[in-house]
Design a protein around this nucleic acid. Structure first.
Lengths: 348, 348
DNA sequence: GGTGCTTCTCGAATCGATTCGATCGATTCG
DNA sequence: CGAATCGATCGAATCGATTCGAGAAGCACC
């Protein structure tokens, strides 16, 4: 296929198509983009010429340079996709973002908030960026993006100048769960917390978590518990996974003065805690009550009917997407707050 | 902040930086890219000027136009991210791709193989594309991308002209599982298959699946079973989820002449089948043996120790990534075949 | 028939960088 | 001491489209 090879070697340009169609480049452009009046006849000539030359449409690089838009929405997530996507909430949110991006004809660029090679954040071509808050070390990225004049939306992150926030009622929702437990008569509760920072070290929840917690979500959810139970202990998990929850659960429930209720900061963690309880021969909820957070599908929760707060993850993602495009249009969308809904399951 | 607003309004250009530093634009470009000799003194002048003007580095749009590279690797996946990412295998593979992309300084563009708005596949700016095979309707996308002269790599897909294949020994691996069951004395087995096409309709496995199956992976795995059990029935699941597996399992195990062994085409499906068995009061493996495929972590398998074939998903992703960049460099990488490893669990 | 529209088309400027070849001292080599 | 070499810098061309303003043609109305 010499034809194929040469076609790859020198892709035809709009100018070539225009020449073959016997029109100017500007007219050809109009024929493709549909912006501006072009006679049917001319458009067909252009399209025929394109077909003949194997022209695949305007080069997006050139178009985006001229237009000043690239049609790409950046999404900054945690280091490892595998970690980030282990949590169904993140996926649901990303799906929401993808919905909006698709509707706006934009594609999604996945950027990882890696410490070392932050080259892509600095040099990827995109029109706006959504920062996913679970990433704890956003500041550097934000600084770079701000310098680039990039519209930014952050989901569940501390308020930052020039960054539109899409928030969740983490604190109030956690307080709701805590109150639920108190009403059931529990007076000694322990928390299994999401990682407080990006060190990823599991361990005992430090007393000065207010100072230490760099993760917005983890801190807010802790505050919520503190609003109801001024004093409580717990563990920091390694991540939002069942296994991490199991480990934390073993540590908490294995001790002498084990609490009668455990507040896990995510449903996956809660499932892990319950598994630990089973392994230790404890009955849930008789011996120990467990609550989660998120409202994952029962399918993802090993079939366990958790007491939890159901958060609107997809809606959150959608809102973030819409906000990003709205910023792009020069509007000034307001920050949004999503609320979670209490769902009583069989674990309390 | 008028400063902030104006900075966003008119981002400084390289030319402006160069002017302020008292050098030519070409020299300033060299100072940033590091390509070509620039005296330390000059570079610092340029950098200082950039700093003063709040210049965030060369505009990626312009750079990619000129260079002819955009530093973006496209990944085409199923319609809904939520569906695609429900399967840990896909995530693991994506993680492998991300590893290689990161190493090559490229970012990942997520493209969904949607029926309607295929605008992004036609017009996203990227340097190469990886097609994830589970997407059943690749042909259209491939045609468009081929026209664009885009280097393509496909993971687990039927061989296509101009598309580099990264394959898995689906057929042989499935045959291994089937043989394992036959050695255990099972003579009536049923298969729970991945969707055969993108209709997503669950139902009885049609006898003419060879003709019907448009999904490469599903078909190959069926062939593998057929190599050992010439005749077998089964169900087509709605997707690779526990719930879909449970539904299929109920249908299969609830019938009068239920098989003594079920071959599920993915571990998630297998977990679902096992759950169905439990609900029907059947013991695994005593009453019914179940095998899966993939080798997901026990954590993701509800703690079940499955008999399965462990496939190297991350390595597959890595290979796909490397192959894409290799194509980009003008090399001619060979198609690769990955092999899965038998792992005997407690379900047979 | 002239005037005032609308519809279509074109030329030229522009987006913001990268890169090739040329230039110009300064240094080194024969 | 002339020539060759090297490092640093610059000017100009180029990447491939989009868009603005202007011009031409066609038409209707008074």
């Amino acid at each position: 296929m010499t034809d194929d090879a040469s076609a790859r070697a020198v892709r035809p340009t709009l100018a070539a198509v225009a020449a073959r169609a016997g029109v100017s480049a500007s007219t050809a452009s109009l024929a493709f983009s549909g912006a501006g009046p072009v006679s049917v006849e001319t458009r067909e000539k252009v399209l025929a010429a394109a077909e003949a030359l194997g022209y695949a449409g305007p080069d997006p690089r050139a178009a985006s340079l001229r237009r000043g838009r690239s049609g790409v929405l950046g999404v900054v997530i945690e280091d490892r996709l595998r970690e980030a996507f282990r949590d169904p909430m993140n996926i649901a949110m990303l799906d929401g973002i993808a919905d909006e991006a698709g509707a706006a004809g934009a594609a999604l660029l996945l950027l990882t908030d890696a410490a070392g090679g932050r080259t892509d954040i600095a040099s990827a071509s995109m029109d706006a960026v959504i920062l996913v808050g679970c990433s704890t070390r956003l500041d550097d990225s934000v600084a770079i993006l701000r310098q680039r004049g990039m519209p930014m939306v952050a989901v569940e992150a501390d308020a930052m100048d020039g960054v539109l926030g899409i928030d969740l009622d983490n604190r109030a929702a956690s307080a709701t769960l805590a109150r639920h437990l108190r009403e059931l008569g529990h007076d000694r509760v322990a928390v299994v917390s999401l990682p407080l920072d990006d060190s990823g070290e599991p361990g005992r929840l430090p007393g000065d978590w207010r100072l230490r917690a760099r993760s917005h979500t983890a801190r807010e959810r802790l505050e919520g518990v503190a609003d109801v139970y001024p004093a409580f202990g717990g563990r920091v998990a390694e991540g939002s996974t069942i296994e991490a929850g199991r480990e934390a659960g073993m540590a908490i429930l294995g001790e002498a003065d084990a609490p009668t209720a455990v507040i896990a900061q995510s449903d996956l963690l809660a499932v892990g805690v319950i598994r630990a309880a089973e392994e230790l021969g404890l009955r849930v909820p008789e011996d120990v009550a467990v609550v989660g957070f998120d409202g994952i599908r029962r399918d993802d929760a090993n079939g366990i009917d958790l007491t939890t707060m159901v958060q609107p993850a997809v809606a959150k993602g959608r809102a973030a997407g819409r906000a990003a495009f709205s910023l792009l249009d020069g509007d000034e969308p307001a920050r949004q707050l999503f609320t979670s809904e209490f769902r009583r399951g069989a674990t309390t």
